[in-house]
């Protein structure tokens, strides 16, 4: 594998491989000195055209724990508007000698364009509404970790997952749907029609507008961040009405089974899509997701840049 642009680049086998590798990097992360020399001499640059604290820090921690050198190229929208084209920026960075470029951009598809222009490995760290593959991988890892902790096989076959909220504008949802369905889970999207993508009928998912009916049946409920600025687009009457119909309120959380997982990619709007005490409930995996994020990204960088990548040519 040369780049990680989409979950569909991996397929079920590729996802399984990342999850297996992640196990060993979780172990590394738990050491007193959580660092291995695997990527010594490699350079990983984060090219973030969009503000992101957690994803950028997570990738940088992952690279550093693998002993790679890291560079951080934060591009504010204003400097882009000063005229340098995306291609020129990317070629400039490559000329500095980098092995991997981790790209975050507000526009869908930018990682595909970057991958065409450079020889370095490209990792999609989120492109517009489109995909966020490492988030999906860490979500899958977190689900499997919980299933195994409970003495299960860790299989996703028949697992019922509800993804609730603004699917239309969510790169996390698109990647999660691809990953979860590839692994055999059954995905139900729960959202008002204004927050669902066009053409949803051809997706391998079930659509519901009734969260109360869905919750008792799910093994996992994933809540998506509601972006408050979306109110201006007449997608919803009000945040209050959204919370009343699609928020995981304290009352609604009682409909969940005792074993059900509550997930959120962060950052959370407490009191909008998730009630504060539900976020802190023992069924919530939200903090665990962040911790696993570093190990998953170590696995991805290792696959692209480590000895494994050379073996694959």
């Amino acid at each position: 594998m040369r780049d990680l642009l989409s979950i569909s680049d991996l397929g079920a086998d590729g996802i399984e491989e990342v999850l297996r590798l992640t196990d060993s990097f979780v172990e590394v992360s738990e050491r007193r000195i959580p660092k291995v020399p695997t990527l010594r001499g490699k350079t990983v640059v984060s090219l973030f055209y969009e503000d992101s604290t957690r994803t950028r820090l997570s990738f940088e921690s992952a690279a550093k724990r693998l002993s790679a050198d890291t560079m951080n190229f934060s591009v504010s929208t204003s400097s882009v508007n000063k005229g340098e084209s995306l291609r020129d920026t990317v070629l400039t960075i490559e000329a500095m000698g980098v092995d991997a470029i981790v790209v975050r951009h507000a526009s869908a598809g930018v990682p595909w364009q970057v991958a065409q222009w450079v020889g370095a490995a490209v990792v999609n760290a989120g492109d517009g509404w489109h995909e966020h593959p490492t988030q999906a991988l860490l979500d899958c890892y977190t689900i499997r970790e919980r299933l195994l902790e409970r003495g299960g096989s860790g299989s996703f076959d028949g697992l019922v997952v509800a993804i609730v909220g603004d699917v239309k504008h969510s790169r996390v949802a698109r990647s999660d749907i691809l990953a979860l369905t590839a692994l055999g889970a059954e995905v139900t999207l729960v959202a008002p029609p204004t927050l669902l993508p066009p053409g949803i009928g051809s997706w391998p998912v079930v659509v519901s507008h009734d969260l109360d009916a869905v919750l008792p049946k799910v093994d996992v409920v994933m809540l998506l961040r509601m972006q408050v600025e979306r109110q201006d687009e007449a997608l919803l009457p009000s945040m209050r009405e959204y919370t009343a119909t699609y928020g995981l309120t304290r009352d609604r959380a009682r409909l969940l089974g005792g074993e059900a997982l509550v997930m959120h990619p962060g950052p959370m709007n407490r009191g909008v899509e998730i009630a504060a005490d539900v976020a802190d409930d023992p069924r919530s995996t939200i903090v665990r997701q962040v911790a696993n994020g570093v190990a998953v990204r170590m696995a991805v960088l290792f696959l692209l840049l480590g000895s494994g990548s050379e073996a694959h040519g």
Binding site: A108, G109, D127, G128, W129, H130, E131, K168, R171, R174, P197, P198, G199, I200, S202, W203
Partner: peptide
């Protein structure tokens, strides 16, 4: 164009 492809690609489409 707004349709199956725009939904999948995450590009805002016009109907």
């Amino acid at each position: 164009h707004e349709g199956e492809w725009s939904g999948r690609l995450g590009i805002p489409g016009q109907p």
